[in-house]
């Protein structure tokens, strides 16, 4: 298994644990009075699961399994796959910090943090498509 796939899959497993932990905290809301910052974690929980775990697992598998790009570059343009990793994780972690912080004490820094997180994750999607599209080849 190539190193990039291993990095993606192991990172996705960390997000899976984190997502389930946040989900557990949210489940406590029915029995315990949670602070506002924790109560606003619902979108964070969902995105840790769907972006951090599922999407990142998918990207790692796509890099490994998609048909070869060429003899010289079997897996295509590695810098694009690495850029996706950095952009996706930076964007997601920024969201994890900024979303509850903004709910607790709205301020320009957190608001810009959310906007920057949106931009980074959007760019991650575009670099992923640019990296994977040329490897989707018919026989």
């Amino acid at each position: 298994m190539p190193i990039l796939t291993r990095v993606y899959i192991k990172t996705s497993l960390i997000y899976l644990v984190a997502a389930l932990l946040v989900g557990g905290v949210l489940a406590l809301a029915s029995v315990v009075d949670l602070p506002p910052a924790l109560r606003s974690l619902s979108p964070v929980y969902f995105h840790l699961f769907m972006v951090g775990w599922i999407t990142q697992l998918i990207v790692g598998m796509l890099y490994w399994m998609l048909p070869k790009y060429s003899k010289e570059k079997p897996r295509g343009h590695d810098p694009l796959w690495w850029a996706t990793y950095v952009l996706l994780n930076t964007g997601l972690l920024l969201r994890v910090a900024a979303e509850p912080a903004n709910a607790l004490m709205a301020g320009a820094a957190w608001q810009w943090g959310l906007a920057l997180s949106a931009l980074l994750q959007w760019l991650a999607g575009l670099t992923l498509i640019a990296a994977a599209w040329p490897r989707v080849k018919m026989r």
Partner: peptide
């Protein structure tokens, strides 16, 4: 989908 998601998240902040 990510374009719409990015717009939603951006809109949440700014």
């Amino acid at each position: 989908g990510i374009t719409f998601g990015a717009l939603l998240l951006w809109n949440k902040g700014l």
